Simulated scan of single mutants.
Amino acid sequence: MMRMAEVKQVSKNFGARQNLVRALNNISFKIERGEFVGVMGPSGAGKTTLLNVMSTIDQPTMGRIYLAGQEITTLPERDLAEFRRNNIGFIFQDFNLLPALSVRENLVMILSMLRLPADQVEQRLAYFSERLNLAELMSRYPNELSMGQKQRVAAARALMTRPQIVFADEPTGSLDSKSATELLQYLATINLEDETTIMMVTHDAFTASYCNRIIFIKDGALYAEVVRSGSRRQFFHQIIDMQAAIGGGNLSDFKNRL
């Protein structure tokens, strides 16, 4: 199996001297091609910082990061921008759709940067609009969409470039339970059938249960990993147990806090 991502002894500091904060602390792990990996941990554990340095939004203070066999921590900005455009997809909690453009235009715009032939653009548009059930929304504008519809459009936009890896930051955080479940089912299907590698930051055990493996971090360091081996229900309870442990309490205490 091809290694899609590798994080080697990565640290990330903010501030200086007396105000120095270490958000990531010498963390290392690997993600194989086709995995659906979740990142979880307490508030302030460094989850979003980790996603940012892996997805090229930010730079680590120390350590090395490899994506699709390329060390991204040494790339100059121009090469990094090209690598990002060709290899990485992003799904954010706040959608980041352009309000003046229709759904179709929001999706096509991302492909214009790749300079694809018109027939390939239409093929991808048709494929992902069917995959994420967007066909009836193509002429609408973002302010005419529900939260769940907006996130499905954002997911399609991230996938339209056929990236090597998709980074998702709390993609269900703004959604109701029905919309969240629909989005997660779409992502799980795309991961399984298209072998799209996904790394998703989440605080929610239900959302995380759609992953194949969960990386738990605490105080910026790797705390534990949980790998799915049975049903999603069993995996969900494994995640709950680990959340209770990482929070410093037992399972009954954790459930009482919900």
Rank of each mutant, 00 (worst) to 15 (best):
M1L: 07
R3M: 06
V7E: 00
F14V: 00
G15H: 03
R17I: 01
N25W: 05
I27Q: 00
V37C: 06
V39C: 03
M40E: 00
S43W: 13
K47W: 15
K47C: 14
L51S: 03
Y66W: 15
E71I: 11
I72T: 06
T74V: 09
L75F: 08
D79I: 08
A81Q: 14
R84M: 05
R84K: 01
G89R: 00
D94I: 01
D94G: 02
P99F: 07
V103F: 04
E105S: 05
S112R: 11
Q120H: 07
V121N: 00
Q123A: 12
L125S: 06
Y127Q: 14
S129W: 07
E136K: 11
R140W: 01
Y141W: 10
S146H: 03
Q151R: 00
A154T: 05
R157I: 10
F167A: 08
D169E: 09
T172F: 07
T172Q: 11
T181E: 15
L187F: 12
N191R: 07
E193V: 14
I198D: 10
V201E: 05
T202N: 03
T202Q: 08
D204N: 14
I215Q: 00
G220W: 01
A221N: 01
Y223H: 15
S229M: 14
F236R: 10
H237L: 10
H237A: 09
Q243M: 13
Q243F: 00
Q243H: 10
I246E: 08
G248Q: 06
N250L: 12
N250T: 15
S252W: 02
